[in-house]
Computed example of a mutant assay.
Amino acid sequence: MIRVLVADDQEPVRTGLRLLLEAQPGIAVVGEAADGAAAVRLARRLRPDVALLDIRMPLLDGVEATSLLAGEGVADPIAVVVITTFDLDEYVHGALRAGAKGFLLKEAGPHLITEAVRAAANGDALISPQVTARLLGEFSRPVRRVRRPSAPLTGREEEVLALLATGLTNTEIGERLFLSLGTVKTHIAGILAKLGLRNRVEAAMWAYESGRVGGDADPRDHR
């Protein structure tokens, strides 16, 4: 059972999200909050598998709450998915840098919201397709120097990274490469360690930024 905390300052939205999620098998909403501060307190007390947070809330916004629950230095982070009506780059970048495992627009629909919650609970990340295209498109353009791996990525790590950057889950990557789920997770952990990154979203951004995907560059040129 995936235990979810829902936080939104509008009661009808919270009710709608709760009804949507609880209609899905294997998901239970264990708490609701009307502001970011309450969301952080409840999440720390209830320890849900996933916190579904609105980006704009009183007292603490979704980015601040995400940073407190899943940011760098948090000893026992909680998976956070940020959901919003506002498709603004500053919100997207802020949420992902704060440690969110997903970023969705409220118009995404029941299926995508449910999939984002399941992905976050499994350690994966899911971002609304319309946001992904713009976000990763930005990182596919030539940019400043990017960090280099502490050690060269192996050929298999390069393959896993390329698929991860297209938005595939661990299970889908395993199916494509004929690898077990555990092996995929091991490769991703190795990639993150070599790059000094915190999560798969940052790894996807790095893959685009370094020219490994989204362009004509050969990944082997970047090792």
Rank of each mutant, 00 (worst) to 15 (best):
I113F: 03
T114S: 02
E115T: 14
V117N: 00
A119E: 01
A120Q: 03
A121G: 04
A121V: 05
N122W: 14
D124F: 09
L126E: 01
S128P: 14
S128T: 13
P129C: 08
P129F: 07
P129E: 05
Q130R: 15
V131W: 09
R134I: 09
L135M: 10
F139P: 02
R141M: 11
R141C: 03
P142G: 06
V143R: 12
R144F: 02
R145I: 15
V146N: 10
R148S: 04
R148H: 02
S150I: 09
P152Y: 13
P152L: 14
L153E: 03
G155S: 07
G155D: 11
G155T: 13
R156G: 04
E157H: 02
E159S: 12
E159R: 07
V160P: 01
A162E: 06
A162N: 08
A162R: 09
L164D: 15
G167S: 08
L168F: 11
N170L: 01
T171M: 11
E172N: 10
E172M: 13
G174Y: 15
G174M: 14
R176D: 07
F178R: 04
S180E: 14
G182S: 10
G182T: 10
V184P: 03
K185V: 08
K185Q: 12
T186S: 10
H187P: 04
I188N: 04
I188A: 02
A189E: 09
G190P: 07
K194R: 10
L195E: 00
G196D: 09
G196A: 12
L197G: 01
R198M: 00
V201F: 01
E202G: 07
A203C: 02
A203R: 06
M205Q: 11
W206L: 03
W206P: 01
Y208I: 05
E209T: 03
S210I: 14
G211H: 06
G211I: 12
G211K: 01
V213K: 02
V213D: 09
D218E: 10
R220M: 01
